[in-house]
């Protein structure tokens, strides 16, 4: 029982990070039917930017950490805007074409190389703003940063969903996501929506990077794993449904922790096989609804 509680808690912390990165995949996919293959690298760059900011300011961590998060978030957004303008908008020819995939994969290579040149090849320690005293929840424990990540993820995803559902901008965004041509006829500029969506996804990635940094520390090569996990969460959640993505991300985190306990080394293979079977049964994800094909 203790173990179950522990892996549920550990899974929550993992899932929270996946949820934030996965929302970034959702917003770009909804607005442009593309996603950024370099999303993982943007996440890591966010972490590096936060780290550099903290190191540069050299103040008390309570002050520099929020500033670091801010820089990571803005840096991620700026980077994603550049990616959208340079590598996505000029080449993307719709969902069934694949040019954007190659160009954003190219961007991933560039960013990876740039990180090892600008920062380092080493895994770098990220300071622990909340210390390392384990917080006990009954028999199980979490690091303070893990608790912070869960709280922050709830706030961020909550804010995002609030904006999407309650504001003029969010409505315009959902209109583009629902039907781009119709939205354009209504006077919504889908190009700006695409830029905005990429900026938002970059910001989410940068934020996720600076949140996850204190837990994982930072390594230039950790982006791919994050991207794959976030992508699984986005897909299993049914990519058009932000709430579904949150649920899927948390389930994924818990499944990962649980399978780790149950079958150790076979975890990844089993998890992925389960996902293939699951998508075979529900081709539109957990909460995605099959669109009735208009003939």
């Amino acid at each position: 029982m203790d173990i179950v509680l522990q892996f549920i808690l550990s899974g929550l912390a993992l899932g929270a990070i996946y949820a934030v990165v996965a929302q970034g995949i959702y917003v770009t996919f909804a607005a442009t039917r593309t996603f950024n293959f370099a999303q993982g690298e943007v996440t890591v760059i966010g972490a590096f930017l936060a780290l550099s900011t903290i190191g540069f300011l050299a103040g008390p961590i309570g002050v520099t950490f929020p500033l670091g998060i801010l820089v990571g978030l803005l840096g991620g957004a700026l980077l994603a805007i550049i990616i959208e303008r340079v590598a996505v908008a000029p080449v993307s020819g719709g969902p069934e074409r694949h040019e954007w995939l190659v160009s954003t994969a190219g961007v991933a290579f560039i960013l990876l190389n740039a990180m090892t040149v600008i920062w380092t090849r080493e895994t770098v320690r990220f300071p622990k703003p909340f210390g390392e005293q384990v917080i006990q929840f009954g028999p199980a424990g979490l690091l303070p940063q893990e608790v912070f990540v869960i709280v922050a993820a709830v706030v961020v995803v909550g804010l995002l969903l609030l904006v999407l559902e309650r504001t003029q901008l969010g409505r315009a965004f959902r209109a583009v996501a629902f039907n781009r041509e119709a939205a354009e006829l209504m006077g919504i500029d889908s190009r700006w929506m695409a830029v905005g969506a990429y900026a938002l996804s970059g910001a989410l990635a940068g934020l996720a990077g600076s949140l996850v940094g204190p837990i994982t520390n930072v390594n230039a090569y950790m982006g791919l794993n994050l991207l794959i996990k976030a992508f699984i969460a986005a897909i299993v959640g049914g990519i058009g449904n932000p709430w579904g993505i949150v649920v899927a991300a948390i389930l994924l985190g818990i499944a990962e922790a649980g399978l780790s306990y149950a079958i150790g080394a076979w975890r990844e293979a089993a998890l992925l096989a389960l996902i293939i079977i699951f998508l075979g049964v529900r081709p539109n994800g957990l909460f995605g609804r099959a669109a009735v094909e208009k003939v």
């Binding site: 173990i3 522990q6 912390a13 780790s260 306990y261 080394a265 975890r267």
Partner: peptide
Amino acid sequence: TETIAPGDTDASAQLQR
């Protein structure tokens, strides 16, 4: 004998076992 996947940030399950 236990294993951990590269990139994992939690090994409580393995240690428990």
